[in-house]
Design a protein around this nucleic acid. Structure first.
Lengths: 236, 236, 236, 236
DNA sequence: CATGAATGAGAGTTCATTCAT
DNA sequence: GATGAATGAACTCTCATTCAT
């Protein structure tokens, strides 16, 4: 019995310890976030991050085994936030009730999920920068492939609810995939340009543009893909 | 006469010399391009660029006075290429002849200019990376403001023909601006995601998606903006 | 009790650590001294200094944040040494006792302080080199103005005891200033030429020359400045 | 005869050519002077000197075979100027005529020669900087020993007229040597401190101090060295 | 004679990372 | 867990000098 008590004590002590460690890890991540945002991924040195966290450079190695890992943890947290926001986005079904067919519900879900995705980055523009290192030319050299895969998976996860709802709306898998891609592209483009002050084209109206796009997309999804659109042709 | 010949000789020698110098400068730029593309703007060291060009690091300073200047020259050339492509894009007016009203011509022009913009980056995906350092968070620290301004101007120039054609189609200035912004965003998003192998969603079909978007946009421009679309509502 | 012991331990550990750090800093400074002396301020590279100290170049940045700072620390230490030597120089009042008036004491003080100044540099000729970067044409670009001011102040401090004693001897402020200037100039010239092997004129007899100058100066200070010297005239 | 004429032609052409070359060499030296004075010996790069002369760096190698050689030429010219000034300095013997004994003439010569030396550097303070690289710690690494010797010789030459006049005044060789050394030291110290604005002690009155020193020195030289001065003793 | 390109060494400084304490 | 010292490689950039043209 004494033994068992001891064990419990030890366990709870360990738990507390782990909790404290996690807290401090979080603290470092907050510091890193601010450094990355202000100075860029390459511009923010470990020393700078450490200073902002109130540590020495070496101390960070208690929490993370490399600078890349800090970045990965940050990106991971961000994507988790994105996912939880998307998951929790409930379809708002208003209107004359009864007519709430499965299709109508699916449509509302598309709208809700896509808006959640867009909204997350619109409200946390910095997280977009973070996520962008997923894209080429800016890849942080050194991210291990496994990590990379995991992070890409998280991004997929944030998109797939929208895709599933599209299918639930009745469009075939291929069209859903295409529309999802186009939607994602539009969102990324919109956000990228939006939180850039340099190209003076957007004046905080990115959500107007997004709504417009979303509406038109949903209209497309309603219409059977088979019915060809008239008079409109080829690209370059 | 002897004198005149001598002068000509001297001039032509200078010209030849300058031509050779330009060629070598170009050669360095090509090397820099490849280095930047493979290693990123910060990842590509002067030494690496020099090695790829077959030079020592110091030698590059005969051609460019800093690393930033190399990048600026590269981006400048790229944007010039984009502009000339857009300028030269002629509206292809086919169809039932007679009906070739001014509006129809304007519509064809929108299509042509926008497609040229898209096509340029689609065919030179690397140039997009280059251009992206214009965007925030990835700004190369140290680009002089004047240079920066000039480069941003070039980007604008590549977009304005499309905008003008939109206005010529009859839509008001404000709508034109908005549609241009959305178009630009869509293109950027599309291209960014497209030439990324990492998000496995695009299979070289970015031009299909682009055409689709373009068609819908043109349809929007035809319809008087005043007629509101039904049943479709608010964003997040 | 245990607690108090622990605190003491921690403190003393810190103290020891700081002591060790100071020692190592001193060690670097010694290495830098030798490098500066042999190679000149610009000739001595950080790498050279580091090598002499048994370090890598980067390691020095634990102790000093720039090359200039090393130089400044060296010069600072040197001037402190000079000052303490001058301060500690006591007037040796010998002779027929009784006559030890205030004036006589002041005279002895002038002699003592000036001799201390001279003696310091005579015995540490290298320190003169160090101090000389205070002079123009050889200024190390980059010394911060505050530092510069502080160093100049230290030099002044080393001279002012002599000046005060001059005034105490009874000569007016203006004459004291002039005589001090001349004395300082003579010392500098003497020392500069003295520890140079190149101009073969001085054979370690700089102190004889100094004594001679000092004696004559004191005689001048005794005599009321008002009594004009005869027959002696203008310069170029 | 035709031959001889040809020879003459060739000679004069060569002479002209050489004259032109010398002129251009001088032009480079002027540029180098300004660069050295403004930027210091190590701070002035060959490129800077070349630019000031309107040349490319490589072009200077037509005139000088190294940067050191430029410096040496400059210093040489400076010392020649000093020498010619000293040589041309005539003793101004004024006063009641008759008494113009040999000793009086020698005394006037000491005064004239020393004043010329002092005056030269007082009027060309920059040349002092130049000459200072003769002194330790600031030696330009790489000056060939022969050159060095020649330059030192020139300096000696500028001093020896004063020394000879001292001897002519009747003092023995040893005393002359010592007084010369002290004089030289005083001049150097005076000038060094004088054209430095940093030690706020001299207000352009360096010539007053010089005159004072000169007068006292001459008085010493008049008095037989054997008569010991009273009451004045030892140095540090 | 002069140029412009090129070299190769070396400058000061920063960095992620390691490790004894 | 945290520190401060240390490493070693890398960075951009400058320099005196050489040499084909």
């Amino acid at each position: 019995m004494g033994t068992s008590i001891t064990i419990v004590d030890k366990d709870s002590r360990d738990a507390r310890r782990r909790a404290v460690a996690d807290l401090r890890k979080l603290h470092v991540m907050v510091a890193a976030r601010s450094a990355f945002f202000e100075l860029g991924l390459e511009g923010a040195s470990l020393r700078e991050i450490a200073k902002r966290a109130g540590y020495t450079a070496g101390a960070l190695y208690s929490y993370f085994s490399s600078k890349e890992e800090i970045y990965a943890a940050l990106l991971g947290k961000s994507l988790e936030g994105l996912n939880s926001r998307v998951e929790n986005a409930a379809a708002e079904i208003g209107g004359p009730s009864a007519r709430s067919s499965a299709k109508a519900r699916a449509e509302a879900t598309v709208r809700a999920k896509a808006s959640a995705f867009f909204g997350f980055y619109r409200e946390n523009p910095r997280d977009l920068d973070l996520g962008f290192y997923l894209l080429p030319g800016m890849q942080p050299r050194g991210l291990t492939p496994e990590l990379n895969k995991r992070l890409n998976g998280l991004l997929r996860d944030a998109l797939s609810p929208t895709q599933q709802a599209m299918v639930a709306m009745g469009c075939d898998a291929k069209q859903a995939e295409q529309e999802l891609a186009a939607l994602f592209a539009h969102i990324v483009g919109l956000l990228l340009l939006s939180h850039t002050g340099r190209i003076r084209m957007f004046k905080g109206e990115s959500n107007v543009l997004f709504t417009q796009y979303l509406n038109q997309m949903i209209e497309r999804l309603r219409v059977p893909a088979s019915r060809p659109r008239k008079r409109l042709a080829r690209a370059s």
